[in-house]
């Protein structure tokens, strides 16, 4: 096997090692990278939250923070939850954590809220509530029921207290008392809100989407059609949000590793192709033919 053939078929374990280095080294030695460009979906996400907070009527309604993720996408989803929750708390918007994909979601979101609550003077029950988890198979019937009667559809919060006895739920009956839905997810749960909740009230409920980078491309048509008012895509989206909030956190730190990992892959693709072309021209020159 020639040199170029070998470059075409690097053992995958070598690739894996290179990847660990590309991701790990920038975390150890803080490597300089420029701040990310804030993309339009991120900006309109931020602007929508600001607009809610500036609206005298809407600011008193409840925001549903739908934590439909598990720890498997925590690096993206939890970072997004963290930065978005900071924004809500900073602008004193009331919110309810809810979850119908994986019970970990409501747990992780709760941990984040407890971590942040002292900094912003938030109190459980007064400023936010956690409705808990409902199984995914029942998501649609539950959300449909929430349109008219949230306390009845949800019943009790994670502390087994009836929603009717929780201060933050005062005056919250159905879809018309919801300021916005923020869906944080790594799976295909957004359609439940779009399909069964968003447009069931007197006016449509603004819907904001924190998604993993995988699902970002799929959701772009929804931004154009007005079904989404803003979107954070992946860790990079969270990093952009941190730029807007002027509060650098984990996302900003991970941004360097993200850059180097991408460049590693780009370099490997180029290397693979160049060596393929070179070995092809070699072998056709030597007359053996039969290249693939």
């Amino acid at each position: 096997m020639g040199f170029f053939d070998r470059l075409q078929n690097i053992d995958r374990r070598v690739l894996y090692l290179l990847l660990i280095l590309a991701v790990g080294l920038p975390l150890i030695f803080s490597a300089p990278v420029p701040a990310p460009a804030v993309l339009p979906p991120t900006r309109s996400f931020y602007d929508t939250v600001e607009a809610l907070a500036n609206d005298p009527v809407r600011r008193n309604k409840l925001v549903i923070l739908s934590a439909n993720f598990s720890s498997s996408t925590a690096a993206e989803s939890l970072t997004q939850t963290d930065t978005v929750m900071r924004h809500l708390m900073r602008r004193k918007l009331k919110f309810a954590i809810f979850d119908f994909v994986d019970p970990q979601g409501r747990e992780l979101a709760q941990q984040t809220a407890e971590k942040l609550q002292n900094q912003y003077g938030y109190v459980y029950g007064r400023d936010y509530v956690n409705w808990g988890y409902r199984p995914v198979g029942a998501a649609v019937p539950t959300v449909k029921a929430m349109v008219r009667d949230i306390p009845a559809a949800i019943g009790r919060d994670i502390t087994n207290t009836p929603l009717t006895e929780i201060p933050v739920m005062e005056g919250v009956k159905g879809v018309n008392d919801i300021a916005a839905v923020i869906e944080v997810t790594g799976s295909a749960s957004l359609p439940v809100w779009i399909g069964y909740f968003q447009r069931t009230g007197r006016e449509p409920v603004p819907t904001l989407f924190c998604t993993t980078a995988v699902q970002g491309p799929e959701a772009f048509p929804l931004l154009k059609s007005g079904q989404l008012q803003g979107m954070l895509v992946g860790l990079q989206g969270a990093a952009e949000y941190e730029v807007l909030l002027k509060e650098p956190g984990f996302a900003t730190r991970g941004s360097a590793s993200l850059s180097y990992a991408h460049f590693l892959i780009l370099a490997l693709i180029i290397l693979g192709n160049v060596s393929m072309l070179l070995s092809r021209s070699r072998s056709s020159g030597s007359g053996t033919g039969g290249t693939r």
Binding site: I10, R12, L15, Y16, L19, V23, S70, S71, S72, T73, A74, A75, Q104, A261, L264, I265, L268, I269, G272
Partner: peptide
């Protein structure tokens, strides 16, 4: 859970390279 998910990062590199 998060480890098994993150393992895809390695596989995506080998898949892209190949």
């Amino acid at each position: 859970d998060s480890t098994m998910f993150s393992i895809i990062a390695f596989y995506i590199v080998s898949a892209a390279y190949r």
